[in-house]
Every structure is written in structure tokens, then in C-alpha cells.
Amino acid sequence: MPAPGHRLPLYHRQSPAVRCVNFLCAVLLTLILIAGIIFFVLWLSLRPHRPRFSLIDFSIPNGAASSAGLVNLPVRFAVNEHNPNQKIGIYFDEILASVYYGDQLVASGRVTHPFYQGPKGDTPVQGTLTATGPAASNPAWGRLSGELSAGRVAMRLVLTSTVRFKVKIWDTKRHHMKTECDFSINGDGTLQQQAKNSPCAVYF
């Protein structure tokens, strides 16, 4: 039995106002959770993925036979651009291409006009540039010529552009894009077999 003077605690029922507030808080938290899940799913489905590029072909004809270096020789390449997005298109401004041998610029120029790439689509990017170097008087030509004679020259193709993503009925802001393709050519100036269809790195 309870000690004298000690009273058992009484059960106090919550007032209707308190129960109403608790119910509204529970409903509000549930709605916030549901909205968060819906927003996350929409974000995953509408989040743009960057385009993918792969090197298809490259050549510098008659490079090994030239006595004046690479100056004025044609530089040809083909790259495939793929849009991996299911429902998002991509607007490309003009694409500029640059070819490097080490740090030496070999050729550069515009290779495409602005274009639109639909979802899950592919666009071939082909370019023919005119080499501006290295000339025969450039020490870089001595190294390049020796590597051509050895049958393997490491080179790099750089593509730059500005892109926008078309998400439903609105377009995103412009993003600067840089694509780098590292590869090697044979002694005759053609692309080595193992480099064909190789993926390029894409930076935003």
C-alpha cells in the first residue's frame, strides 16, 4: 500500500487541441517525406548526363615522307558523339578542334556548326584541318620524325564547345565542355588499331 500522505499519479488525458497539433505535425512530416522522395526521383530522371565521345579514325597522310615537317599537311579525324540521356537533348555550339604532339600544336580550327543532339542519339564529328607545325626547323620535328620511323607517335585531340541541355520544356545554362582523346598513330600516319573506338575524356 502507498505510504501515508503519498498519492498515486493521476492519468491526464491530452486535450483535443494538443492531439490536433500532434496529428497535424505527423501529417506534415509525412507530406514532407513523400515530397522529398518524389523530388529525388525526379532529380534522378532529369539530371543531365554529359555526352560521350569516342575516337573513330585519325590520319596525317605522308607525314613520314615529308622533308618540311608537318606544315600544310592535311590532318583528318572522325569522332562519334553520343547522348546517353533518355529524355534530355543537348544543344552544341560550334566545336573547335586542336591536335597536339606533346605540347606542340599541330593543327586547329572549327569542325562543326552549332547542332542539336536528341536523346539517345549519335552524331559523327568529322574534321579536316591543315597542319601548322612542327616545321622541319623545329626540334620537335626531329623527335616526331624519329617516332614515325619507329612506328608509333603519341598524339592528343582536343575538342571544345559550349553546350546546353534541353530538359522537357526548359533549357539549362551554358556549360563549357572539353574533350580529350589520347591515341597513337603508326609510321604511315594512320591510327593504330587498338586506339579505334577508344573513349575520350569529357570535362565540364
Rank of each mutant, 00 (worst) to 15 (best):
M1Y: 12
M1G: 07
A3M: 09
P4M: 12
R7W: 07
L8R: 14
L10E: 13
R13P: 01
A17K: 13
V18E: 15
N22R: 12
F23P: 00
L24I: 14
L24Q: 11
L24Y: 11
V27H: 02
L29F: 14
L29H: 05
T30L: 15
L31G: 01
L31Q: 10
I32T: 08
L33M: 08
L33V: 09
G36S: 14
I37D: 02
F40N: 14
L42N: 14
L42P: 00
W43D: 13
W43Y: 12
R47S: 15
P48F: 02
R50H: 10
D57G: 06
S59E: 14
P61T: 10
P61N: 03
A64G: 01
S66V: 11
S66T: 08
S66D: 05
G69W: 06
L70C: 07
V71M: 04
L73H: 12
L73N: 06
L73R: 11
V75Y: 00
V75E: 01
R76P: 00
N80I: 07
E81H: 00
E81W: 00
E81G: 01
E81L: 15
H82V: 06
N83G: 05
P84I: 10
P84R: 09
K87W: 08
I88W: 04
I88Y: 07
G89R: 10
I90D: 05
I90A: 04
Y91T: 06
D93E: 15
D93Y: 04
D93Q: 14
E94H: 10
I95L: 13
Y100H: 15
Y100F: 15
Y101H: 08
Q104T: 14
L105M: 13
V106R: 07
V106L: 12
A107C: 04
G109S: 07
V111E: 05
T112E: 08
T112F: 05
T112A: 11
P114V: 02
Y116E: 15
G118N: 06
P119D: 09
P119M: 07
K120T: 12
K120C: 03
G121H: 12
D122A: 05
D122C: 02
G127K: 11
T130W: 03
T130F: 05
T130D: 03
A131Y: 04
A131H: 02
A135F: 01
S137M: 02
P139K: 01
A140R: 06
W141S: 12
W141H: 09
L144S: 03
G146I: 06
G146M: 04
L148I: 03
L148H: 07
G151N: 04
G151M: 01
M155G: 04
R156H: 06
V158Q: 15
T160F: 02
T162R: 15
W170C: 00
D171A: 09
T172L: 03
R174N: 11
R174P: 03
M177W: 13
T179D: 07
C181F: 02
G187L: 00
G189D: 11
G189L: 09
T190G: 07
T190P: 00
Q193I: 07
A195W: 13
S198D: 10
S198P: 01
P199Q: 11
C200S: 00
A201F: 05
Y203G: 00
F204I: 15
